[in-house]
Design a binder for these strands. Structure first.
Lengths: 200, 200
DNA sequence: GTCTATAAAGCGATAGAC
DNA sequence: GTCTATCGCTTTATAGAC
C-alpha cells in the first residue's frame, strides 16, 4: 500500500481524460464513426490500457452520457433559483442544449443501435441521472401547464421528448452551415418557435 | 438481340426489388447498421449480382432517397390542387412525412457521414429532385408568410429545414413506444405544435 | 497498469466459373 | 448476369512482456 490515494488520483485523472475525448469525438462524428483507435490516439495511451478502464465501446459512450447528464443536472440546479416561472426555466434549458451543441459538447448517439441501448439501460449511473433529469423537467412542464404557458392538452411526456429532441436538433447544424445568420439569432428562433408551438 | 425489352424489364424489376428492400432496411436500422449482406439476403440474390446494378453501398442509399423524393414530389403534385391555402398544404406535407415514418418507408441517413454526403451530392438524380422539392416547398412557405400564417421574420430556409426535420423526428418513435396514444393523436399533436411554433 | 503485437470477427467489394 | 468463394481492410478486443 504505497501512496494508494495518489495512484487513485492519477487513475481518475486518466479516466477523466478518456471521457473528455470520447465526449468530443462523439459530438464530432457520432457513435458509429468514432473508433476506439481514434480515442486512444486522442488521449495518447495504448488501446489495451483503455480497456482496463472501460470494457467496451458502449461503456465509453455511457460514461460520456453520464458526464453530459451531470452537466445538465448542474444547469437545472442553477436554474432552479434564477428564472421566475417554469416556462422561463424550460426556455433556458432548451437554450443551454443548443449552446452545448454549438460548443461541440453534445455527444450524438444513434437511437436505433440495440446493443448500445441495452448497455445504456443497464448502466445504473446513466439511468439514475436520466430519471432524475426527467422527473425534474417533468415537474417544470406540469407547472408550466398549470400556469397556462403550455397547452394542458399535451401529454407532459410528449413535451419532455420534444425538449430532449432539442439536444440533437438537425436544424441547428443545417442552418449554421449556410453561414447567413449568427448563432444567437438561430438559437433564438429555434427556442422561440419550439415554445410557441407548445403554448396554449 | 433476343427479346431485349423483356430482359430489360426483368432487370428493372430486380432493381426495383433491391431499392424496395434498401428503403425498408434503411428505415429500420439506418445506413451504418444496414449491411449489404442483409440487403441481398432480403432480396434473395447474390452479393455480386447486386454490385452489377449498384457499384457501392452509398449508391444504394442514393437510389432509396431518389425513390422517397419521387414519392414526396408525387404527394406535392397531389396537394397542389387540393388544399385552399399554402399553410394547409404545408400541414399536409408534414402529416405525410410522419405517416411515411410510421409505415416504415422513411430511410434514415446519417447527416455526418462524409462519404455518403459526397455520393449524394454527386448523384444528379438525387440533387435534381431535392432542388425541385426545396423550390416548391420554399414557394409555399413564402406564400404562407405573405398570407400571414407563418411568421415573416423567420428565414424561409429555416422553416424548410424544420419541415425536413419532421421526416426524422425522434419524438414520434419515442412517444409511440410508450403505447399510450394512437398514431393519429400523436401525429396531430406534432403537426399542430410545429405549425403553431411558426405562426405570426 | 501500460505497452506492443495480434487475435477474431464483420464489413464492403471482387474474381472467376458457369 | 448470376452464382460461390474469397480478398482486403477496418474494427473491437485481448495476450503477454515489462
Amino acid at each position: 500500500m504505497t501512496r494508494p490515494r495518489f495512484r487513485e488520483q492519477v487513475l481518475l485523472a486518466r479516466e477523466e481524460a478518456i471521457v473528455a475525448s470520447v465526449n468530443r469525438l462523439l459530438a464530432e462524428k457520432g457513435f458509429e464513426a468514432m473508433t476506439v483507435d481514434a480515442v486512444v490516439a486522442d488521449v495518447g495511451i495504448a488501446k489495451a490500457s483503455l480497456y482496463k478502464h472501460f470494457t467496451s465501446k458502449e461503456e465509453l459512450a455511457a460514461a460520456a452520457m453520464v458526464r453530459v447528464l451531470d452537466r445538465a443536472l448542474d444547469e437545472l440546479a442553477r436554474l432552479r433559483a434564477l428564472p421566475p416561472n417554469a416556462l422561463g426555466r424550460l426556455e433556458a434549458v432548451a437554450r443551454w442544449s443548443y449552446e452545448q451543441q454549438i460548443a461541440g459538447q453534445m455527444p450524438i448517439l444513434p437511437s436505433q443501435n440495440s446493443t448500445l441501448r441495452a448497455a445504456l439501460t443497464q448502466d445504473k449511473a446513466y439511468m439514475d441521472r436520466l430519471m432524475q433529469l426527467s422527473d425534474e423537467l417533468g415537474g417544470w412542464i406540469v407547472e408550466a401547464q398549470r400556469e397556462g404557458h403550455v397547452d394542458a392538452a399535451l401529454p407532459p411526456e410528449l413535451v419532455l421528448y420534444t425538449l430532449f429532441a432539442r439536444a440533437c436538433d438537425p436544424v441547428l447544424t443545417a442552418i449554421r452551415a449556410s453561414g447567413a445568420h449568427s448563432d444567437e439569432q438561430i438559437v433564438g428562433w429555434l427556442v422561440r418557435t419550439w415554445l410557441k408551438g407548445l403554448a396554449t
